[in-house]
Amino acid sequence: MTTGHNSKLTDVLERCRPVPPASPNILKTLLAVQSALGHIPTSGILQIAQVLGVTDAQVAGVLSYYSDLRTQPTGRHLIRACMGESCMANHSARVLRAIQDHLCPAAGDASQAERFTVETMSCAGNCALSPTVMIDEHLCGRVTPSDVPSLLEAQVLRRKTEG
């Protein structure tokens, strides 16, 4: 964990410190940490446990249980292909392959891994417009494999101009 992370973590945990009679809420705390740091470094488990007054096993247990809690940072752009049943019926597997082909020309390219994280998700709730791809917070519907390059460029550029 970097020094920057360390002080950010301390700040977040200060805000999450339970005030009696409220009981500590591990999941809420971990979500707050993730929202501030982008992920939850496993090296911070002990500190989180101490602030909440619970055991580190309890914190690690919650951290490993929920699939949306991340212990590793993601790339600058998070691309999630929906694999829910409506998307599956509409060939989301082909869309996922197109994304992987487009973004991973050379396997193990570290700079590419820093830029993009490609994942699947089980349902985005956009089933009437399947197949769905989520690029960062932006949801795209009716995606075909041939749309993928322009979609990725458009969203990445959009983020750059907005950011």
Binding site: G84, E85, S86, C87, S122, C123, G125, N126, C127, A128
Partner: peptide, 8 residues
């Protein structure tokens, strides 16, 4: 927690 795929 609308988790069933296909529901929205």
């Amino acid at each position: 927690d609308e988790g069933d795929a296909g529901t929205y």
